[in-house]
């Protein structure tokens, strides 16, 4: 038996497609690690598997998942948005600022949404019309937004005077489950539906899969690249508005960490289901991955600095795995 297998594999040319089994391993190994991690923490960490802690994890990853779902649109079109953290910050300041100025909630939220669309359009124009690679255009855009965020508040946090209806969005619970979890599920469901079940999603994946081929197939590539970038920003401002609600204040620098964490969810997601391709479900699992590991390490009493190191290692590992299957041509 053993010698037979050896013989077969020896005679298989190097370029032949990989056997089905390794394909399965490739698709689901990250998910397996996530499940093992979950079981491990459940068995060995006392306070991990409790309803309170689990709903806590959901609350902790909800905003990150929304940012990551947005970034997935960008990655599907092979556009990376490095300004996403500051876009989260932008809405996280603009919405509470308008509320403290006495504007009604609906109007404040609408303004936040509009700001997201504008940021996305500017990114889109810079990338598709001016022709600046997305990595560079959005890096510069991030710097601009960073400045804008501090200008709006004069560098101070906005708190006090926020209406209860707004605070309830991010802090309330329904049937004991945090509202944020519902928002997260909605965001994931919508993003998944758009990417997997609509013509729009097909075109976005086509543009990201091979821009030249999509163009020669008659796909309006500029439109779909722009649309993907606008969606990244729109999901980011939704996340930002919810973040300020959860914190009960608008702070100019809280969005930043959502850039790296958001990218991490997408990269981890790209190692599973369809290796090399950003998928919404993959990103969701990526967010769970980060949520479970952070929470577990927290409960063990691990320093937050150590958590950063662990996160960095996870991102590198994920990208290393992805790079083995596809070229990450993001510049």
């Amino acid at each position: 038996m053993t010698s037979q297998t050896a013989q077969i594999s020896a005679s298989t040319p190097a370029s032949a497609p990989k056997p089905v089994r390794s394909d399965f391993v490739q698709r689901y190994s990250t998910l397996g690690v996530l499940i093992l991690m979950f079981l491990g923490f459940s068995l060995f960490v006392d306070r991990f598997l409790t309803p309170f802690n689990l709903s806590n994890i959901l609350q902790q990853i909800a905003i990150l998942t929304i940012v990551g779902s947005g970034l997935t649109f960008g990655f599907a079109a092979k556009e990376i948005d490095l300004s996403v953290g500051y876009t989260v910050g932008l809405a996280g300041i603009l919405v509470p600022l308008l509320l403290t100025m006495g504007y009604p909630l609906a109007l404040a939220l609408l303004a936040g949404l509009l700001a997201g669309i504008i940021v996305g359009l500017i990114n889109g124009v810079l990338i598709t019309k001016v022709g600046i690679p997305s990595l560079i255009a959005t890096l510069a855009m991030g710097s601009i937004l960073f400045g804008v965020n501090f200008l709006m508040t004069g560098g101070r946090a906005i708190y006090g005077g926020l209406p209860g209806t707004y605070l309830a969005l991010g802090q309330g619970r329904l049937f004991g489950i945090p509202n944020l979890a519902f928002f997260m599920v909605c965001a994931v469901a919508i993003a998944w539906f758009v990417m997997e079940r609509t013509v729009f999603g097909r075109y976005v994946y086509a543009v990201g899969g091979n821009q030249k081929a999509a163009e020669l197939s008659g796909v309006r590539i500029t439109f779909y690249r722009m649309a993907a970038l606008v969606l990244v920003s729109v999901f980011a401002v939704i996340a930002g508005a919810l973040l300020a609600s959860r914190l009960g204040s608008g702070q100019p620098n809280v969005g930043e960490r959502y850039l790296l964490d958001g990218l991490a969810t997408v990269f981890i997601g790209m190692t599973m289901f369809r290796p090399g391709t950003a998928t919404v479900l993959g990103t969701f699992c990526g967010a769970l991955f980060i949520g479970v590991i952070n929470n577990g390490l927290n409960l063990i009493g691990m320093d937050t600095y150590i958590q950063n190191i662990v996160k960095g290692i996870i991102i590198l590992t994920a990208v290393a795995i992805v790079s083995r299957t596809t070229k990450l041509n993001l510049l």
Binding site: R202, Y205, A206, G208, G209, N210, K212, A213, A214, L216, S217, V219, R274, G276, T277, T326
Partner: peptide, 15 residues
């Protein structure tokens, strides 16, 4: 010029 290598058969056919 024509195909997305990381895409599936059905995704490419429906491009």
């Amino acid at each position: 010029n024509a195909l997305a290598g990381d895409g599936t058969v059905v995704e490419n056919l429906t491009m």
